[in-house]
Design a protein around this nucleic acid. Structure first.
Length: 660
RNA sequence: GCUGGCGUAGCUCAGGGGUAGAGCAGCGGUUUUGUAAACCGCCGGUCGUAGGUUCAAAUCCUAUCGCCAGCUCCA
């Protein structure tokens, strides 16, 4: 921060609500917080001054906008967890003298520290004793003390300590910008900021140990990374651990198996998921949903083969550029063919098969296209990371003038899709940075595209962030990050602009000026991959799917064998109405049949016995809710059909049924 | 691919040098049932795979495959 105004005797601080106050120069964040309320001063962890997070006791020497960071803010948590990482390092140094420290940052959920334990292996069993030490140290209420040190001193400090990692970090730092933080007996090279003292840390959980390469480079030594999380209150930790357990219960690998969604079979091959009957119903329902919506929006569906001549990918540039993640080509007659890693080149050839007039554009080609990519074995994970998957892919070929409308249409479709599942969406505009070499296509196209994307986002009133340098090689993109029912974030759909492929495939259209022009391509996929999206859906709904997606929608449960006939009759009517029905005609007790339907997460049960036979009614029981009462069969059938058609979410359906 | 952990019956798990265990599921009977587990019996495993050590290996060692947590990468 510049201190050009340090000669002034006062600084003007602007608060988040835009009101301003004047303080003497050199006032600290703590003093500013105290001037508002003692409570705030007590809760404050750090301040953010002009987007820079600072210690509470750093003097403020220039005007600026301030935020006082408590636990309830993101910056506050980051400060808290970063300080907790130091606490972890202190505990580890105390318990394992002679360890070398790498880096220890705060992360989205907690923090980690990378540590070289030398010849000692540390496993999860060792974590409780480190936790205990951390708590002990936290209770000493040690202040975090910042000290700016000359580079020479920092270097000799770490030479003394024989820590090659910190020395390597120091190489990249300039004299005059180096600071140490000390708490208790522990000093660490650190930019800061930190919380005032260790006693705010009341609850500690070390979660995991894992190997991590120094600086993320697999040529470097692998350090031991200890992950942890801390809280200012024990209750918060309890809640967090509860959330972790909840997430575990929702794990799609567990539920996917239990509900018969998919299997992975070692004889078929790892990373090659097999969709079981229940999963296939679910997936086809999702596809039908998107397909219908795309048809309404003027898409044309195509089907392309799973392997293609290598020349196709040489033309697109995917080969050999991405050959690390592609399966090796196979020899077919005199030519080489490759498993399809992308659908786009096929679609480009479809576009290119005939002349297009500007009047025909946009051309929107869609495909549920299955692609194969080689993922390293350690990457594979259930349905969410696989080697063969199906993209809900589409490519839109349009003129520059149509681009804005098409982007708008894509964003609208994507939002429509995620709204249907009640998944809140964060939007990120991924633009290029100044590194020209990273990107293809003409600069003016990029600039226009980025401007138009932003205009569209503004016109739609979207709340978005811009990520410079996150664009793909061939164009800027819009990324959709959704949040699931337990608040986890997933990057899903993308809309990407492409100025490179039209050149590579020599795609043209005839303009009104009777000249050939290059179309712009939009790549977009709301779900991204059917496999990954299904994994997220399973976890989002915890397997309790909305009726329209449930593999089995209604279980018919006769009270005893005598009522089987009526159950078959009802089942037939439900099937005719398009519902997926299971009739449980086993000679089992009703309690068991209900229990099994509950654990299979079938949304509705219809119980049929003497009373129902007499009156042509059904007793309806709803999954997770219980007995809803008795209804005329035909009425309930219509109600269910409506619920499917409107794609009602389980939470909404519960409200409706419990209120009547 | 790398580091660490884990592979025992269809599933969930116990056992840790001396003849493989439980519950659930499955099968056969009995029970004909009113809103989350009826009763009896039976079947079921080369202890992931391959080597090795040993009189003897599910158990110890080595390799390998798979899974899990991370690391790296992701058009």
């Amino acid at each position: 921060m510049s201190s050009e105004k340090s000669d002034q005797s006062s600084v003007t601080i602007t608060f988040p609500d835009k009101h301003t106050r004047t303080f003497p120069t050199g006032v600290t964040g703590f003093e500013v917080a105290s001037s508002i309320s003692p409570r705030l001063a007590k809760d404050a962890l750090s301040i953010t001054l002009n987007e820079t997070v600072m210690d509470l006791d750093r003097p403020i020497t220039s005007d600026g906008e301030i935020r006082i960071n408590t636990w309830d803010t993101n910056d506050g948590k980051m400060t808290f967890w970063h300080s907790s990482a130091h606490l972890l390092a202190e505990a580890v140094e105390a318990l394992y003298p002679g360890v070398r420290l790498g880096i220890g940052p705060a992360i989205e959920q907690g923090f980690y520290y990378d540590i070289d334990f030398g010849d000692t292996t540390v496993s999860v069993e060792d974590l409780p004793k480190i936790e205990k030490k951390m708590l002990e140290l936290a209770r000493t209420k040690s202040d975090f003390v910042r000290r700016e040190v000359p580079k020479d001193e920092a270097v000799s400090f770490y030479k003394e300590k024989q820590d090659p990692y910190k020395l390597e970090l120091l190489e990249d730092l300039e004299d005059g910008t180096i600071s140490f933080y000390t708490q208790g007996n522990f000093t660490d090279l650190c930019r800061g900021p930190h919380i005032p003292n260790t006693q705010n840390v009341k609850a500690i959980k070390l979660l995991n140990v894992a190997g991590a390469y120094w600086r993320g480079d697999s040529d470097n030594k692998q350090l031991t990374r200890i992950y942890g999380i801390t809280f200012p209150k024990q209750k918060m930790l309890d809640e967090y651990l509860h959330m972790l357990e909840e997430a575990k219960k929702r794990d799609h690998k567990k539920l996917g198996k239990e509900l018969g969604i998919y299997m992975i079979d070692s004889m078929v091959g790892s990373g090659l998921p097999i969709w079981l009957p229940n999963g296939t119903v679910l997936r086809r329902s999702l596809e039908a949903f998107l397909r219908d919506e795309q048809i309404k929006r003027g898409y044309q569906e195509v089907i392309t083969p799973h392997i293609a001549n290598l020349k196709l990918y040489e033309t697109s540039g995917h080969y050999p550029y991405y050959s690390d993640s592609q399966y090796d080509p196979i020899q077919v007659d005199d030519e080489q063919y490759m498993m399809k890693p992308m659908n786009c080149p096929h679609h480009h050839r479809i576009y290119g098969r005939e002349m297009h007039s500007y009047r025909d554009l946009p051309v929107r080609l869609s495909e549920f296209g299955t692609v194969y990519r080689y993922e390293q074995s350690g990457e594979l994970n259930g349905l969410s990371r696989v080697r063969g998957f199906t993209q809900d892919d589409a490519h839109i070929y349009c003129t520059d003038d149509q681009l804005k409308d098409e982007i708008k249409n894509c964003i609208d479709l994507t939002q429509y899709v995620f709204n249907t599942f009640d998944m809140p969406v964060d939007i990120r505009l991924s633009f290029r940075d100044d590194n020209e070499k990273k990107y293809g296509g003409k600069s003016e196209n990029w600039e226009r595209a980025q401007r138009e994307i932003r205009e569209v986002a503004d016109e739609l009133g979207l709340d978005y962030t811009i990520a410079e340098g996150e664009a793909s090689f061939y164009g800027p993109k819009i990324d959709f990050i959704i949040r699931d029912a337990i608040g986890r974030k997933w990057q899903l759909g993308t809309v990407q602009l492409d100025y490179v492929m039209p050149e590579r495939f020599d795609l043209t259209y005839m303009g009104s000026d009777n000249q050939k022009h290059r179309p712009v391509i939009i790549h977009r996929a709301p779900f991204g991959s059917m496999e990954r999206f299904t994994a997220i859906l399973i976890e989002h709904f915890a397997g309790d799917f909305p009726l329209w997606l449930s593999p089995k929608q209604v279980a018919l449960i006769p009270v005893s064998d005598q009522y089987n006939e009526l159950a078959y009759e009802y089942a037939e009517k439900l099937r005719e109405a398009g519902l997926r029905v299971h009739t449980d005609d086993r000679s089992e007790q009703i309690g068991l049949k209900i229990r099994e339907s509950e654990t299979a997460k079938i949304p509705y049960m219809m119980i049929i016995g003497e009373r129902e036979k007499a009156n042509k009614t059904v007793a309806v029981r709803k999954h997770k809710i219980g007995d809803l009462g008795t209804f005329a069969f035909d009425d309930y059938l219509n109600k269910l059909a409506t619920e499917v058609q409107s794609r009602t979410l389980p939470s909404e359906a519960d409200k409706k049924t419990t209120s009547n």
